[in-house]
Each structure stands twice: as structure tokens, then as C-alpha cells.
Design a binder for these strands. Sequence first.
DNA 1: TCATTAAATTGTT
DNA 2: AACAATTTAATGA
Length: 246
Amino acid sequence: MKSLHTTSDLPLYQRRRPLEPAELDAIPWIQLLAPAERQRAADDLRIADASPGDYVCRMGRPVTYWFGVVDGLLKMSTDNAQGQTMTFTGVPPGGWFGEGTAMKRESYRYNIQALRKSLVAGLHVDTFHWLLDHSIGFNRFVMNQLNERLGQFIAAREIDRMTNPDVRVARNLAALFNPVLYPGVGQLLSITQQELAYLVGLSRQRVNEALTALAAQGSIRVEYGGIRVLDLAALRSHVFLRKNGL
DNA sequence: TCATTAAATTGTT
DNA sequence: AACAATTTAATGA
């Protein structure tokens, strides 16, 4: 098993560049802005590659950017007092995060690492604040974002208490397929079973077994290097039936 | 473009 | 953790 830990740090400070038009279209909130606001945002936005293990931001560092995933997959985690790492969630394409700390201009409260080769966009905090001060559309987006994420964290607490691995995999997948938080995902989530195992905290074998069960039940389809949703509502709420019962 | 080979991912034990 | 089977990506004619 390959290690995710590297010594590289904050790749966004190097190798970053302005966005191309196609990449701008992958920014969900850009269409909500008035022309002048959109221009300012587009001028400020920067994008960079992140390799597996690269840190996009680190706990305790001052906030520099508000980040979004254009392509790839990131992992949000924290280190507790005992020095153990706790993974909160994955961040698939279309996801933007860090608005809470950006608003307060505090330091990041978690680590964000690339789980696979990813394209990460960043909006400088100053521009983030300027948009908050000038754009109603942007404010709506941020509020909606905060509200939706609150729902996810409440759901995440429930997931943690669940013992059944199949249900854990199902709920975690449902979270990643959230169309409001991650509009870039669509019906097909690009994620390997190994990556999903990292996020859910199970072995790859057990994830494979759960995926097979979920596929048999009809809520997803397993593809090479990805998962396709067929029934998101079922994924969210399904109380899994044991193998031998029904 | 096609065929071959290497690499990545999946399914199974 | 190990291994075989499958799928994709890379290479070169």
C-alpha cells in the first residue's frame, strides 16, 4: 500500500496560473455573479495541479485562499491531540471549502490533501471578502453552501455510529454525490475503491464487498475507476438488508 | 490507427 | 496481504 504522506507543502504557491474558459465553467458560483463581479473573480482566480499526498492547506496556517476542486479528489482531515489523523470527508469536483475560516480570516482548521492527481482552484481571501460585500448572488451561494454542509456534518455523525460497513459505504457515497455541494460530480464519481476505502475508513476488500452488495441492490453501478449512481435517495436512506434475509 | 506492453484497478481468497 | 483477472494508458511501428 502506498503512503499518502509526503514532505511537499502548499503546491498552490508554485505552478499556479489563470483559469482557462473551460475551467471557469467548472466553477459553480461564477454564473451567479453580475458581469463586473464575475470579471473581478475570474481575474483573481488561480489554478494549480496537486499530486497525491500534496497539501492544499494545513491546519493552523493563516487563510490565504478559498479553495475549490475543478477535477480530482481531495481529503479533509484533522489531527487530534493524540496525533492521530481523522478523516472527515472527501471533496470531489465542484466542491468549495474553507468559507467559514475565510470569513473570519482565521487559520485553517483542517488539512486538505490530494487523494489523487487533482486540479485545485483558489480565490484570494481579499477577493472573497470583496464578493461578500458586493454580490448578492455570491452571498446566496455561500449561505446555501454553509447550510448544506451543516446537513452533511450532522449526517456524518450518524454515519460514525453505524457499525454496518455496507451502510457506511452507502452514506459516504451519498454525501459525495451531493449535487448542491459537488455539482461537478454528476452521475459518475471518479474514485477508486482504494480511495473510497481511505475516506470511509475500511479495507479495500470490505469496500469492494459493500459496493457489490449496493450494486446488486440497484442503487449504484460499479465501473472501472468510478461509481455511477442509479438511485441517490436509496443510497442516502437505505437500511441495508443482510445477505441472508430477503 | 493498430498491436504490444506496462500500469492501474478490481475481484477473490 | 497476496494473487489473478480485467481495464486502461503508454509506446512505437
